[in-house]
Every structure is written in C-alpha cells, then in structure tokens.
Amino acid sequence: MSKEMQSPAAPERQPKKSGSAGYMVILAACVALFAVFGYFLRDNKLSPLATGLAVVWSLFAAVQLLLEKLHSHAKTVSAMLSSVVKYGAVIASILFLLNAAGVDTSTLLAAAGIASLIVGFAAQSLIEDVITGIFILFEGQYKIGDFLVLGDFRGQVIDIGVRTTTIEDAGGNRKIVNNSDIRNVQNRSRKDSYAVSKVSVSYDTKMSRLREVFDAHRQEIFERNSDMFEDLPSFNGIQEFQDSGILLHFSVKVAEKDIFRAQRVLNGELKELFDANGIEIPFPQVVVHKQQT
C-alpha cells in the first residue's frame, strides 16, 4: 500500500536564520566607537554624540541577543519587548542627534507631552492596538508558534509586535492584523489535533467484520505514516445513516500543522484497505431504461 495517496505536500519552510551575527556586529562596532570617542578622541566635539549613540545601540544589540535565547511563552514576550526596544533605540538616537544640533531637547520633550494629548485623540486606534497587544501578552491568549483561525484565514503566529500580529499559512502567505482587530480568534494549539476521515460503506457491510479488518491493519497504517501520525488511527463508529450508505467516522492524532495533509493520507489508506478486503464504498448511480419501440 502506498504511503501517501495525495498530491505532494508543500515543502517544509526552512527556519529563519538567526540575527545573532548581525547584533554581534552592531555590538562590536558600538564598543569600538565608544572606545575611540570616549578615550582617544574625548576632546572632539562629536564625542558626546558618538558615545551616546554607541551606548544606545550597544544596549539595543545586547538586549536583542538576550531575547533571542528565550523560547515558548518567553519567546512571545521577547518579540514584543524587541519591538519596544527597537522603537526606544530609534527615539533615543533622534534625541541625541537633535541635542548635538543645538536643539533644546528638554523643551522639546515638554512640548511633546502636550502634543501627545492632542495626537492621542487622533491616534486612538494605535493606542488600542498597543493596549490590546499588552493584554494578549499577559493573558497568554496565543503565543508565537500557535496555529490560529481568524475568520477564513488559518495559519501559524510568527511574530507579535506592539501594534500587529503576523500569521503565516501553509502556503507561506502572511496576514498582518492589528492587535485590536483580533476578535473571535480560535487557537488550534491549545488541545490535541485530530485528522478526521468520514467514509461511507454499503448497508450490506457487517460492522463487526469491518472493525476486525481495521483493527488488524491500523498498526501497519500507523507505521507507514509514523512521521505524521502521533498515535494509532481510530474507528469511532457510525456518524450518520445516509440514503445510499452508512457514514463512518475515523480519526488520528496529529500535529496541528499536519492536520489537512494527514486527512488526505488517512482517506487514501482507508480506500486501499476497503478495496483490498471487499468493503464497498457506495456511490450514486443512474439507471437508464431504453424505451421499447
């Protein structure tokens, strides 16, 4: 019996390369910049600007390297913190540049505090996104790596930012959703996932014989697909009495990412098993009577 009875599965997506090397380069460059302008060129008028930027971006690189070591729920927290740190580093750099250009940043910050109240009324959606993102983080509604169903889109969470969540489906298509727009979401990674196969058999089929045939071969079916199936497939009984046959329900425990592929595989295995043992799968037939002349 062939191992897989469906079109070839999409190739597994290669894991993204870590940014550790890039952050190490940033950290080394910042340390070198700090050493040059903090000690050798300390009297240079660019020294305060250069050393300030070196401190900001070396802290940024160090935090990013630390966050890359975290996993699971901590990895979700690190993704959001990474976004916050990135924004903070950019804002601090802008303030250093303005200060070097002679701008009174203390006055600017005071004015920004007043302006933020005005802008806040026009940026309610942005504030809502950020607050919702914080609730998602601390309530643990979902984390990076979870599979979500959002409307008609199903995919894996690959990033959670301050404002948005990015979900990628099996075809590599990405959906970027504002955190405040994530409502009525279904988290498919909270419980075990099962691939389900529903197949009809003739009313003439003896259920006891069908169960014996299935029980005798389900170990073989599991072994052929052990890279995908997490347990032996199960026959769960009669689902429905239909006009032309009896609808049966089969299932097998799988990883959520394999659920549709496993369903196709299980369908193929059952079809070959039934054919080999003379178990009929009924189908509608049209009888045409030729009129006698």
Rank of each mutant, 00 (worst) to 15 (best):
M1P: 02
K3D: 03
K3S: 08
S7I: 14
P8E: 05
P8F: 03
A10P: 01
K16Q: 09
G22M: 11
Y23W: 09
V31H: 07
V31R: 07
A32H: 05
A32P: 03
F34V: 04
A35Q: 05
F37I: 13
R42I: 02
D43A: 10
L46D: 10
S47A: 15
P48Q: 06
A50R: 05
G52Q: 02
L53H: 00
L53F: 01
V55E: 06
V56F: 02
W57Q: 07
F60H: 15
A61C: 08
V63P: 00
L67I: 02
L67F: 14
L67Y: 12
E68L: 13
E68Y: 08
A74L: 14
A74S: 11
K75D: 09
V77Q: 12
M80S: 08
L81G: 08
S83P: 07
S83G: 15
V85Q: 06
V85L: 03
Y87H: 10
Y87R: 07
G88D: 02
A89T: 11
A89S: 13
V90Q: 06
S93L: 08
L95N: 01
N99Y: 05
A101L: 13
T105Y: 01
S106K: 08
L108N: 04
A110M: 11
S116E: 10
G120N: 06
Q124L: 11
S125G: 02
L126W: 05
I127D: 08
E128K: 15
I134W: 06
K143Y: 02
I144S: 03
F147M: 09
L148F: 10
G151R: 03
D152W: 08
R154E: 13
R154H: 02
G155Y: 03
I160Y: 06
G161Q: 05
T164V: 10
T164I: 10
I167R: 06
E168Y: 04
V177K: 10
S189C: 05
K191C: 03
Y194G: 04
A195Y: 01
S197I: 01
K198F: 05
V199S: 11
V201P: 03
V201D: 05
S202E: 09
S202Y: 04
Y203R: 09
D204H: 12
T205N: 11
K206I: 02
K206Q: 13
K206W: 02
F214W: 11
D215F: 09
Q219K: 15
R224H: 00
S226C: 02
D227G: 05
P233R: 00
S234G: 03
S234C: 07
F235G: 05
G237P: 01
G237C: 08
E240F: 10
F241N: 13
F241C: 02
F241K: 13
D243K: 14
S244E: 12
K253S: 04
K253F: 08
V254W: 01
V254N: 01
K257Y: 07
K257C: 06
D258Q: 08
F260M: 09
R261V: 15
A262W: 00
Q263W: 02
N267S: 13
G268Q: 07
G268Y: 01
K271E: 09
L273V: 00
D275T: 12
D275F: 07
N277M: 04
I279V: 13
F283E: 09
V286W: 02
V287N: 14
V288H: 08
V288M: 07
K290D: 12
T293I: 06
T293N: 11
